[in-house]
Design a protein around this nucleic acid. Structure first.
Lengths: 137, 137
DNA sequence: AACAATTTTGTACTCGTTACAAAGATGTAA
DNA sequence: TTACATCTTTGTAACGAGTACAAAATTGTT
């Protein structure tokens, strides 16, 4: 948790206090938070924090390759700080998003029908392990 | 193009003129239109058409299984009238969305790490065939 | 023709996100 | 230190997709 400042510098982002705090939140809370989650989580300790700052920062982080935005869930942009490619599964009951590590063979070749693939987003929806158990009662 | 009315009835939707026209638009324009695309496409010929009607109708179609909403592109919901499961590829240059037919083996089993899969959405992004050619010039 | 049920319309609103300009903080050179 | 330019942060206003809601129009039934 000490190298966050360096990580920012490596990505050409000057490490202001707010930026470090936002990155720290993302590193600690691996739950694919929304901009609003982050704002609400930090404003308790940084009362002057502005929502616009959160949005600006997330945009900068994304542009400079620290974050990956994930879309297609609940009409909000969620962010994650995780480099390994993986699949997302969202439970339609409880709304929680799970990370699932899998290699998807098809996307290992970088072309499909002549198109060059740069990103892939795989979103599954269904009923999660926990909610399945609860339903059986 | 004549069976649209029947299709609606089969899905328990009374076939009003507007609904037939909206379905016709979706059947003709296989470009994953947004609600606004549909509205703008139809309002020329149906000047009294309301945007709310388009939204209501799309919601009803989705609920009754005629349409599939696709998300994760450009922050708008797009709709498609196509039953075969397939992958979507969006070009980051021209914005066009291509359908790619592929079987994704992983999702043939209906459980993954204990979670029950009900839907899967696979979105690729990159540079499409056409834009690649143009770039080489 | 009369009445109920359904469909359509228009307006106002919500909510995530962005635009923008002012205010504040930081760094550099003299 | 002071002065000045640059970057960061803030707050307000605005945008745009989508929704809520009630009135108006249409349809179906007897």
């Amino acid at each position: 948790m000490k190298k966050l400042k360096e990580l920012l510098v490596e990505h050409n982002i000057s490490p202001s206090l707010h930026r470090i705090k936002i990155l720290e939140y993302l590193a600690k809370h691996r739950i694919h938070p929304t901009a609003d989650d982050i704002y609400r989580g930090l404003v308790k300790n940084i009362p002057t924090l502005s929502k616009t700052t959160v949005y600006n920062t997330l945009k900068k982080f994304t542009k400079n390759g620290i974050l990956i935005p994930i879309t297609g869930f609940d009409n909000e942009i969620r962010y994650e700080y995780d480099k390994k490619p993986h699949i997302h599964f969202q439970c339609t009951r409880c709304g929680k998003i799970y990370d699932i590590e899998r290699d998807i063979d098809i996307f290992k070749n970088y072309y499909i029908e002549g198109h060059k693939i740069q990103e892939h987003h795989i979103n599954l929806k269904g009923i999660c392990k926990n909610c399945l158990v609860n339903e059986e009662r």
